[in-house]
Design a protein around this nucleic acid. Structure first.
Lengths: 195, 195
DNA sequence: GTTATCTAATTGAACGTTCATTCGGTCGGC
DNA sequence: GCCGACCGAATGAACGTTCAATTAGATAAC
């Protein structure tokens, strides 16, 4: 019968509240009582949607992962030049982090916490893997230097994260143009030099 | 008369214990009681050396910062080519993180936590600034493309962190040679192409 | 050389607080 | 009047911190 149980909006509100609080206050500084208040529900209600805080955070991670994966290949068009697709990917991910600073902060906290070690989701493909596939395609089709795709992904994702962090912390205000300049640095480093 | 107060070794042991625990268990999962036990002292003793857990973590950050700064410019020789110095810097920092995974994990947790916001040390120059100076020198002396040094630092440091993390998590085992390959990508992206 | 005295380092049980989680009860739709 | 979503005070475990008591070591007195 697939009855409409619970309230999906409330579940979403709890996830959003958790992201906001962890994003700005860290894991500590985000007690369930605050998450509840911030979401506009009672403390006990959270346990109606999530069995524990741990699972709540697992689900939040999965939720965020989905969001990034959607943003990542937005406007990607296999008919366009690989260089064009590369720049598009870079801008997509970087501006997603800049628009959602809480996501970046949460991910940083999450991935270097012991949560990762016990969450089965991490056995599966993560969005890093999607990038590796993309670079692999570039190498095999002669767009990129013959570098192991496991080397390319760290350069790419590390740069994006670090750039977005610089922007968010206000150390440097990136414009669309300066973001492209950063992407250009990497592109110049990995592209095949056609002589 | 400069009497020898306290026990510097004990203070060091407490800092080291804190780094180990936060590195492998995160901030949560590192209660003072465990830090004490791991350091081989009683809980109360920590408060003889540090007024609070917060200050303990501040001092640990300063301690780590000093270690990185020392490693960073090891064997740096201004008489060698800029390219040589660049590769040296890259390898120094990257292998430091690989040799001290707890440092990397701690820094990730620390820099994306609210600690940063209230620690006055962050008003001062950090090791990122040292990198910016280095790149600035490279640009002004015609070794590097005319790119804002604030753009270069994120590419550089972000790549290093991401590379070290890939190595530590075991996703990819970098050799000295493959580390040099990664450095080469960036170098190719930022060097001046002498025609 | 021995004993007494003082000081500072160290201990760990105890305290008060905060937190995740529980549960008896309320409310609204059907 | 039944059911399930929802509430929020209550619970107990865990935590950071305190402090009275103990120890270690140095100095002084004899």
């Amino acid at each position: 019968m697939n009855v409409q149980l619970d309230n999906p909006e409330k579940k979403e509100a709890i996830l959003q509240s958790t992201l906001e609080l962890i994003g700005s206050n860290g894991f500590h500084g985000s007690p369930m009582s605050l998450i509840a208040k911030n979401a506009g529900v009672a403390a006990g209600t959270i346990y109606h949607y999530f069995p524990s805080k741990e699972v709540l955070i697992f689900e939040l991670y999965a939720h965020i992962k989905k969001g990034i994966e959607q943003a990542m290949f937005k406007n990607d068009d296999q008919h366009q030049s690989f260089q064009h697709r590369f720049f598009n990917l870079f801008i997509n991910v970087c501006s997603y982090y800049i628009r959602n600073p809480n996501v970046l902060t949460f991910l940083e906290q999450y991935t270097s916490s012991p949560f990762v070690k016990c969450n089965p989701i991490h056995q599966k493909r993560n969005f890093n893997q999607e990038m590796i596939d993309f670079f692999n395609y570039g190498v095999e089709n002669g767009h990129l230097k013959k570098i192991d795709d496991h080397l390319l992904a760290p350069v790419f994702h590390g740069t994006i994260i670090s750039t977005a962090k610089h922007h968010i912390t206000g150390r440097y205000k990136f414009t669309q143009e300066s973001l492209l300049n950063v992407a250009q640095i990497i592109w110049d480093g990995i592209k095949v030099n056609k002589s």
